[in-house]
Design a protein around this nucleic acid. Structure first.
Length: 204
DNA sequence: TAGGTGATCTTG
DNA sequence: AAGATCACCTAT
């Protein structure tokens, strides 16, 4: 294939290896997060993300480059899923980025349903299609069928992957502080959350 | 606005 | 071994 990648082009290994986490995080806006479990295909357009960098960021589980049974996933080479449980019930999906040994990850906080709407509604036990369906990191994980059993799974295979979606103009990307990281002291003020301006699935 | 829920990490 | 904490959501 020559020229511009098709909209369904799956991101490759090299794409995830960048050490420019903020640029990379922004670039995921508009892309498609896809899952296919047991023949159930669901696709959501990424509309809100947060960057976490284990070396320098007090909000990261891996700060300061702390390897534990949970965080070891983040130290692996980019292009895999980091999925963990919070508050005893919520599964949160992150994209691991950067090369092996660097604990960078990008939390997906909201998607907009693109395909598999009925499956998402069934998994969420909801009839609506509004921000309650896929807006919020735990909501989208549930809608897409992602749970901690997929921690460490490669995004280069056919269960969870990212594909090129829609272009988002730089003017339509808002940077803001991250949500739920008050424990991170001054790093809670970093503008490391990015979202598509005006999208109704975005937090708050 | 308050309470639920259990893995994770620290000894807060 | 026990306790505090937690990258959140739902129903009042």
């Amino acid at each position: 294939m020559i020229g511009k990648p098709q909209s369904n082009y799956k991101l490759n290994f090299d794409y995830y290896q960048s050490d420019k986490i903020l640029e990379l995080a922004k670039s995921f806006l508009g892309m498609h997060l896809c899952t296919n479990f047991n023949g159930h295909l669901t696709i959501g357009k990424i509309v809100e993300v947060e960057a976490y960098s284990g070396a320098v960021d007090k909000a990261s589980h891996a700060y300061p480059n702390k390897i534990t049974p949970r965080t070891k996933t983040m130290f692996m080479a980019g292009g895999i899923a980091y999925v963990y449980l919070v508050y005893g019930m919520h599964h949160l999906f992150n994209i691991v980025t950067n090369s092996e040994g660097s604990a960078d990850a990008i939390l997906i906080r909201a998607v907009e349903p693109i395909d598999g709407l009925a499956i998402m509604q069934e998994r969420r036990n909801m009839l609506v299609n509004n921000k309650l369906l896929t807006g919020g990191p735990a909501r989208l994980a549930q809608a897409l069928g992602i749970n901690t059993s997929y921690d460490g799974l490669s995004l280069l295979e056919d269960k969870i992957w990212i594909s090129i979606g829609e272009e988002v103009e730089a003017d339509n990307i808002i940077a803001a502080t991250r949500i739920g990281v008050e424990y991170a002291a001054e790093d809670a003020l970093l503008p490391w959350r990015f979202y598509i301006k005006g999208n109704k699935y975005v937090s708050k």
